[in-house]
Amino acid sequence: MLNHYRIMLVLCSSVLTLVGCTNEKAFERTQVEGVVTLDGAPVEQGVITFIPAGKGATAGANIESGKFVIPKEKGPSPGDYRVEIDSSVPTGNKILDTDGETMVDEYANAIPPKFNRLTELKVTLKNGNNQHLFDLEKE
């Protein structure tokens, strides 16, 4: 009987050791949340992207009613980041849709390039919960 228990013990411990093997090169991640305003008013619909200046994960989230949250499991890494913010608003014009037949609304980015493609926004993220307010001014 004692032998059986020994066999069981060996099997169980080998299973536990196998489970312990994981990918250790994965990015360290952290949570970010915050508020985005343009000329004082919250950005209704948009997107925020965190792009690493050095090593780290790229991450982003949609902005709704001025707020965004990136949970830790999909978040950026602690470190220096560039931030890109985009928000599309209808221009009032109509353009041809991809089928070449129907007309659809044309949209344009309400956020100036200095906050997205040519961004000047920089943040340093730390471990734990990061909270950031992005108060954008067009001028």
């Binding site: 997107v47 992207t49 994960a57 982003g60 949609n62 991809t98």
Partner: peptide, 19 residues
């Protein structure tokens, strides 16, 4: 359409939303 090609603006499988 531009959605049929791939850019490296963000890393692979990122949580950053596509535009």
């Amino acid at each position: 359409e531009p959605e049929t090609v791939v850019m490296t603006r963000v890393g692979p499988n990122s949580s950053a939303p596509d535009l």
